[in-house]
């Protein structure tokens, strides 16, 4: 008897898991359907989802939202499922631009395709909506210059440089610091230091998305370079990991932190003064704009598409002065606080 109960409990858990992951209801109303596909699951995308939903309501279309796991392969299977199911348009943040051109072109033949956040410039996508990560990186570099006006040693922390965003952000930071011209195609090897303008960029440490590793990287940097001046965290979880490492080493405020993205801990750090500033994208706007563009294109209205096929949603610099206003707005958009509260 006892075995039976345990078995059925286990079964219930399994079945529960399956139905929770199952395909969503779709196509009941005959309205156009648009899909928004992220490159990986992240808090960042939860904000974009709000924008997608808002635009869906505003334009009276159906939207679906997908956060594939498992990198390029996982994203590919989600895209293929969408094609099989049939949608009127897809906005996608491309996982692996260099190698996904084929599948993207296939999609572009069958439905309307735009890229968002991470672009695949060689594909047949109609437009790219997002930030120029290189420019955003240079913005981040400016923050480092302000944090360390007299120059000093800088280490960069990032999940990976395989992804276009990580790679371009990092290059932007480096180029800005050593005062080079803008050239997004430049790439400094990650282990090689770059020096110039009084700044010494010691290198770049990657963590493959493991936050514990990100923290260990920051700690190892403190061991190796006790005289480090500034730590730059380029993925959302990097700045909190750096803060934790510094706090445990009693070096908060002694080593500057420059951040990327809007993790709660990062924003709190800016308020407390332990983080000099952060560069935020506008994921809500990514979501909203994507649906707006897809709706227009579905009506064969191309007026929203600029000549260079790039709709810029500029990154913003958040520092102590504007952090509170930004955070409040963010909370409303993510539904953490109700509007007008």
């Amino acid at each position: 008897m006892r075995k039976l109960i345990i078995l059925s409990a286990a079964l219930a858990v399994v079945l529960g898991g399956i139905t929770a992951c199952g395909p969503r209801e779709q196509g009941k109303s005959g309205k156009p359907r648009f899909a928004f596909v992220t490159n990986m699951p992240a808090s960042f995308w939860v904000i974009a989802k709000k924008g997608v939903e808002k635009a869906g309501n505003d334009f009276g279309v159906e939207t679906s939202y997908h956060m594939p796991t498992g990198n390029a392969a996982g994203q590919k299977s989600v895209l293929e499922n969408l094609l099989a199911r049939g949608v009127d348009g897809i906005a996608v943040s491309v996982s692996d631009p260099a190698n996904q051109t084929d599948i993207l072109d296939k999609i572009a033949k069958k439905t309307i395709l735009v890229t968002v956040d991470a672009d695949a410039p060689d594909s047949e996508r109609l437009v790219y909506i997002g930030v120029d990560n290189y420019t955003a990186g240079r913005q981040c570099g400016k923050l480092v210059r302000e944090a360390l006006p007299g120059g000093g040693k800088v280490m960069i922390f990032v999940g990976s440089v395989d992804q276009d965003n990580g790679r371009r952000r990092r290059q932007g930071v480096i180029d800005e610091l050593v005062g080079r011209d803008s050239d997004p195609s430049r790439f400094d090897p990650i282990d090689k230091g770059v020096t110039g303008n009084g700044y010494e960029i010691l290198g770049t440490l990657t963590d493959q998305g493991d936050p514990a590793r990100a923290k260990a990287n920051a700690e190892d940097t403190l061991s190796r370079h006790p005289d480090i001046g500034c730590m730059v965290g380029l993925f959302a979880y990097n700045p909190p990991a750096i803060m934790e490492a510094l706090s445990q080493a009693n070096k908060l405020n002694k080593v500057k932190i420059v951040a990327f993205d809007e993790d709660n801990d990062t924003l709190q750090g800016i308020i407390d003064g332990t983080v000099s500033g952060t560069i935020v994208q506008n994921p809500y706007e990514y979501g909203y704009k994507s649906i707006e563009v897809l709706v227009a294109l579905n009506k064969e209205d191309t007026s929203l598409i600029p000549e260079n096929k790039f709709i810029d949603i500029p990154a913003r610099t958040i520092v102590k002065e504007n952090v509170v206003a930004f955070w409040d707005d963010l909370k409303i958009k993510t539904g953490e606080t109700e509007a007008g509260e």
Partner: peptide, 15 residues
């Protein structure tokens, strides 16, 4: 791990 790291993403923690 969470007491030490303080912040954790469900997608990646413990991968």
């Amino acid at each position: 791990f969470i007491l030490d790291g303080n912040s954790a993403q469900p997608v990646v923690l413990g991968n």
